[in-house]
């Protein structure tokens, strides 16, 4: 009988250890306590010209604070990306809110940042923010071509400087050089 008691105690400890591990994994390791998965909330449709690398379950933030999650990403009949997000119930947005697809860090994942406007009317559940009010994801190729073209327009300024080096030197540098 003493042996049976011992068995029951150790089995109990074992099961408790297992459940404790589960709790630890659930709360400390995973996002269970910070997830906005289901529960109270409402959907919004955000239209983007380019959804970039946005993935379902990506964060939706306002001022960097998580307020929702991306549910689905689809293409509508006008070939515009329709991103359905699930917003936390307490968040009420004005209807001139801007939505942008941002990148977390240099090589990070894409997420959505919302910039609320100043309108009096609020966005209702299921409302849509059109692509005119959204910033699409930054595409690396566009960035590079923009950088290259801006570099191409620079040489005009530097050639003007080269024309008058003797004048300023003979004057003993009394006059400041205005051109720069």
């Amino acid at each position: 009988m003493g042996q049976r008691k011992w068995i029951e105690i150790t089995v109990g400890l074992f099961v408790v250890a297992g459940i404790a591990s589960l709790l630890m994994l659930a709360l400390k390791v995973s996002n269970l306590n910070t997830s906005y998965e289901e529960g109270k909330g409402y959907p919004l449709s955000l239209m983007f010209n380019n959804a970039g690398g946005l993935k379902p379950k990506a964060k939706v933030t306002i001022a960097g604070v998580p307020v929702g999650r991306v549910r689905t990403i689809e293409l509508n009949h006008d070939f515009v990306a329709k991103v359905v997000v699930w917003m936390h119930q307490e968040i009420q947005l004005p209807d001139d809110t801007k939505a942008s697809i941002l990148t977390a860090g240099l090589l990070g994942d894409n997420y959505i940042g919302l910039t609320p406007g100043f309108s009096e009317t609020a966005l209702k559940s299921g409302a849509m923010i059109p692509e005119t009010q959204t910033d699409s994801a930054m595409v690396l190729e566009d960035l590079i071509s923009k950088f290259v073209s801006s570099k191409a327009s620079e040489p005009v300024a530097s050639s003007k400087v080269n024309e008058k080096p003797n004048e300023s030197n003979s004057a003993g540098q009394a006059e400041p050089v205005h051109h720069l």
Binding site: F14, G18, I19
Partner: peptide
């Protein structure tokens, strides 16, 4: 499953 959970934790 209990053992696997304990292992991971």
């Amino acid at each position: 499953p209990l053992l696997a959970l304990i292992f991971s934790a």
